[in-house]
Design a protein around this nucleic acid. Sequence first.
DNA 1: GTGAAAGCGCTAACAT
DNA 2: ATGTTAGCGCTTTCAC
Lengths: 346, 346
Amino acid sequence: MSRQAPTLEDVAREAGVSRATVSRVINGVRNVDPAIQETVRLAISRTGYAPNQAARSLVTRRTETVALVVSGAGGVSDEEQNAFATRVLADPFFGRVVSGVVGHLRPRSMHPVLMFAETVEAREAVVTYLRQGSADGALVVSTHADDPLPALLAGAGLPAVLFARPSRPVALSYVDLAHRDGGRLAAEHLLGRGCRRIVTVSGPLAVSASQERLAGFRDTMARRGHAYVPLVQGGFTVDSGMAAMTELLAEHPDVDGVFAANDLMAQGICQVLRERGRRVPDDVAVVGFDDSSAALACRPPLTTVRQPVEDMAAAMARLLDEQIRGVRTEPTSIIFDPELVVRASA
Amino acid sequence: MSRQAPTLEDVAREAGVSRATVSRVINGVRNVDPAIQETVRLAISRTGYAPNQAARSLVTRRTETVALVVSGAGGVSDEEQNAFATRVLADPFFGRVVSGVVGHLRPRSMHPVLMFAETVEAREAVVTYLRQGSADGALVVSTHADDPLPALLAGAGLPAVLFARPSRPVALSYVDLAHRDGGRLAAEHLLGRGCRRIVTVSGPLAVSASQERLAGFRDTMARRGHAYVPLVQGGFTVDSGMAAMTELLAEHPDVDGVFAANDLMAQGICQVLRERGRRVPDDVAVVGFDDSSAALACRPPLTTVRQPVEDMAAAMARLLDEQIRGVRTEPTSIIFDPELVVRASA
DNA sequence: GTGAAAGCGCTAACAT
DNA sequence: ATGTTAGCGCTTTCAC
């Protein structure tokens, strides 16, 4: 192995100054003679010094690490735990979250620890992890409306920010999308292009985002005289989109417009439509939601309601960062506006 | 805020014992009277004590954290960094890696820090992170053959394990697949079902896995008398698969079998074939590689060469774990065998 | 502007 | 089996 790593002491000796001075130089504290700064910097590179993060954390009470938690609800079996991670990461949505989070953290030399909290034990582990000071706070992305983790975190007084408003009120900051407006945009677009037999495939109604998108959509439809919009509930996956469309097609063969609550399902829907010989968008127009990579991968490319996930995730990281630094003390919410992106499918 | 967190000292006082005894109970060191253990445990829960990880790490020189690094090669621009994370996570392959890694780490109360190293600075950041003792070691998944990170890590004497054999020899452990055997399995299957006009879409030839899969495939074809197999290079994405198949179809309209170097491309290939009115597998048989979620999502479901990614990732984590604990000192390689999974596409 | 010294909370070697 | 004690390497008053 390599010999013992150099410490502040070593650098100080090498530079002929005290530990305190070296520490000041490293941490960019002013009031250090420029000449000495140079000497110290030289000594640092000569010794190949790297500050010990544990020692630093012990006194600063900060780790520059945050937990990025993907949280479910149920009491899932051990078997399914792996599946949970795989499933979550397979969704292009999550990649955008990570991207946005890292975009904020990296320039600040902060790092995300990936955690999955789909069981009672796993949730406890998250709380323990934070209570031990292994991370300074948590960014929580819930996949289920009645996720108990936010309340657990809030109860323990741990810094945390949520992606999406919690279903039960909890004293935590969050970022969210104006999902209702998104549903409205979709409805207006379909109606605007002349669709009259419109159906919709919602997300799991246990997820509040699904409900909101649906509510906004239905609301707008109702205002335009469409009292009834056939609905099938999907699961935010390609497969569930296919199944839903198959079902809808059987009951409503004259459909000419579909609103899917996310792009993955819209992709499945387009696939089924094509298999049944319906042209998209000529016979049936399809509008998705998210503007994820699936929207571009889809044939035809999806017209969709864009959710600025990267920006939202970055804002989430910023909120947590501010809370950790004590800059922000009150729970804050930031709501982003959706935007219609018109491509070929509608 | 909440009041100062309780320390070992507080628990010790509460239990009427010394700090050392409490420490022993917490760390499960034997030689502690069962009765006292009980007293201590009670004091712990009464005080709501959680050990301070920084203090612990300072003395144990271990963080119970490993860096999970996705590493590229180039000097990518800042703009593209976000895209890198998004792109990487969009690939179902990565979700399986995470799943396997977490599967090993979690039961050991270890945690992965997610890092992306697609620029010179980012790679430096990884090295610094490890040198500071913020993580005990690194699990590296390279997306490019001439990734400089492994050499950097090895040079710094930092514990690290790679997914896939490095292109230049480096003194690090790695896990890998017998890609050549995988290519062979694909060729044998296509030939076995009677295909005679076989083409192939490889991955980026800068990636050694691509080369190996191709070599095994070509080798087997050659042994069976097929001297020439038309080849188009793809990029492991659905789109690149579509483009490649379009090209191949133009030059070889009589094609009756395709070997794609991954499932994503196979998916694109199936899509193009269907659009051109070719039935899969009746007119053209398609074999993919990986057995990722894309294989099941594909229509028809893909016959594919399974790569046990979760197992490989778990093994990678285990190797690193052993290296960190000092159980293993020599670089070790573990090569997994591919397996043909027959579904509908071939 | 710089140094001396006091901890941060824990583990582990040693003493008992 | 339990207690005492010496650090781990750093930041941060507090003097100067």
